[in-house]
Design a protein around this nucleic acid. Structure first.
Lengths: 210, 210
DNA sequence: ACCTGAACACCGTTCAAGT
DNA sequence: ACCTGAACACCGTTCAAGT
């Protein structure tokens, strides 16, 4: 799909057919950067264009609309999530590590409403397959693995959502939770580990019970 | 805080001081109705005003801004979530039932991005206290209960988020998940029960292990 | 006090015209 | 083909003026 012929590359400035001012990748990169610390929804096409020093409508030469751009950005984020290799420890640990990676990557860039941009690109499928194969290596049948996947996915979406609010509020979700009632000495990271460990433990029991 | 004097109530039509065309409750009710099947964010102040047959700016006499209205709407929704009484069965079952209730209520009205409107009103605190007291009755210490609460909260936020997308897409989340990989014969309701049961089971083990 | 029209500062995107 | 200015159909909210 890469089109650049040698001819084009050797004389980029003399181009008669006006050199493409932009490319999809650059748009996605800058969108990702602007979204950092906030939500992708908050980045407007106008702001993005301004940052790229280009009129707004030029963006639409490369991307059909904002939703499509969202999918590209999501895919780009997910690409950075590493799936642990089979030899990197027991399956529970690999599963934990994968989810840790995902949370870290999604947290580093601005968290977007993940569930809203759907599976879209191939990266989501890659990660899903990663989770499933770890579960299978842990003795889950296909059906059991699919069920467990859904539960893990739901928990992760919730975590990202909560982290997202945290980011927007400047680390004050604990405050909000305290206002509501419970207090714990655990950090947010520790609570994530705790919840995920508990869930994995529970899923293991359900499998054994089958 | 209710102000209505008998005098006012006995001659509502003759009011010299122009009868308040609206009240907060009516605005919240209609907002809740309009949000049904979608997201509260999608209901615009303009649409809401139109439905109430009132100029947009009149709304701002009763409500400072849309975010504040969101909190009122959220509180109104949470008010409908019943907390099971202590004599309604073992704690695991009561916990499951409470979460089921919450999901049903939040699903019936349009799901809003729950986490985005924060604790706000007293209803969130009421439900949190409900969950905590059930956990305590299950032998969790305060600290353990707080940790477990966070995990359950995270899972619930994720579920609501996923349900929300489901609603917007017309029940096609399964489709999206299938595209990504895993398939299961379970319904979404069954998967919710499965995930929650697993998590509760895991939390129980973590408590026992302490 | 309660109410409200006009206006402001934004959105994403369509459309027609430019090279 | 690639690019783009103007315009459209929206937002939430401020402000000043009305009763």
């Amino acid at each position: 799909m890469v089109e650049g012929t040698p001819a084009e590359q050797s004389r980029p400035r003399r181009g008669r057919g006006r050199p493409r001012a932009l490319d999809e990748q650059r748009i996605v990169d800058v969108a990702l950067r602007l979204a950092a610390g906030g939500r992708f929804e908050q980045v407007s096409m106008r702001t993005l264009a301004q940052e790229l020093d280009v009129p707004v409508m030029t963006l639409y030469t490369y991307v059909p609309n904002k939703a499509a751009l969202g999918q590209l950005v999501l895919d780009q984020m997910l690409r950075q999530v590493r799936v642990p290799e089979p030899d990197e420890g027991p399956w529970e640990q690999r599963l934990l590590e994968l989810q840790r990676n995902a949370r870290r990557v999604l947290g580093r860039h601005g968290v977007m409403s993940l569930s809203r941009y759907g599976a879209g690109g191939g990266e989501a499928a890659r990660l899903a397959e990663g989770v499933l194969s770890i579960l299978r290596s842990g003795g889950f049948s296909d059906e059991e693995a699919a069920r467990a996947f859904t539960a893990l996915y739901t928990f992760m979406i919730g975590q990202i959502e909560v982290d997202g609010v945290d980011g927007l509020l400047g680390g004050r979700v604990e405050q909000a939770l305290e206002d509501v009632g419970p207090t714990t000495s655990m950090s947010r990271d520790a609570l994530f580990e705790f919840g995920l460990t508990s869930l994995i433990e529970g899923l293991k029991r359900q499998r054994a019970a089958d």
